[in-house]
Amino acid sequence: MGNPSPTSPDSREPQAISSSDVTTTAKPDEISPPYTPNVMRFLEGTGISIPIAENYSSEDFYSDLLCNHLKVGTVRRGHVTCFTTVKPTITNAFGGLHGGAVAAIAERVAIATARTVVGEDKDMFLGELAMSYLSSATTDAELIVEGSVVRSGRNLTVIEVGFKMKETGKLVYSSHATLYNTPIAKL
Score class of each variant (00 low, 15 high):
Ala16Asn: 06
Arg76Cys: 06
Asn38Thr: 12
Asp64Leu: 10
Ala93Ile: 11
Thr178Trp: 02
Thr182Ala: 08
Asn68Glu: 15
Glu120Gln: 10
Arg151Gln: 12
Glu54Ile: 07
Lys122Phe: 09
Val72Leu: 15
Ser152His: 15
Tyr180Val: 14
Thr74Met: 07
Ala26Leu: 12
Ser175Ile: 02
Lys122Pro: 00
Tyr62Cys: 09
Lys122Cys: 08
Tyr173Phe: 12
Lys186Gly: 06
Gly96Gln: 03
Glu142Thr: 11
Val158Tyr: 03
Lys71Glu: 10
Met1Ala: 11
Glu59Thr: 11
Glu120Pro: 08
Arg41Ala: 14
Thr81Glu: 14
Ile48Tyr: 09
Phe163Gly: 04
His98Pro: 00
Asn38Glu: 07
Leu187Phe: 10
Asn92Ser: 08
Glu44Pro: 01
Pro4Met: 07
His69Ala: 13
Ala141Asn: 14
Asn55Ile: 07
Pro34Asp: 09
Gly45Ile: 05
Gly45Cys: 06
Thr178His: 00
Phe42Leu: 14
Ser136Phe: 05
Tyr173Leu: 02
Gly2Trp: 05
Lys27Asn: 03
Leu129Ser: 06
Glu146Phe: 01
His98Thr: 01
Leu65Ala: 11
Gly45Met: 08
Ser148Asp: 12
Ala16Phe: 05
Val22Arg: 13
Gly95Cys: 06
Asp64Gly: 15
Val150Cys: 00
Glu59His: 11
Ala53Ile: 06
Pro9Arg: 07
Pro14Arg: 13
Ala16Leu: 08
Glu120Met: 08
Met1Val: 13
Pro88Phe: 07
Leu66Arg: 05
Asp123Ile: 01
Val86Tyr: 07
Glu142Asn: 14
Glu146Pro: 01
Asp21Ala: 13
Tyr35His: 14
Ile159Met: 03
Ile144Asp: 01
Val117Met: 03
Pro51Asp: 10
Ala106Gly: 12
Asn155Cys: 00
Glu54Val: 10
Ala106Asn: 05
Val80Ile: 13
Asn55Phe: 07
Leu65Ser: 09
Asn68Met: 12
Ala93Pro: 00
Leu126His: 00
Lys122His: 11
Ser8Phe: 12
Ile31Lys: 01
Ser8Ala: 13
Ser8Met: 11
Val102Thr: 13
Leu179Tyr: 04
Ser135Ala: 15
Arg154Gly: 04
Gly45Asn: 12
Ile48Met: 15
Thr138Leu: 15
Arg76Tyr: 05
Ala26Thr: 02
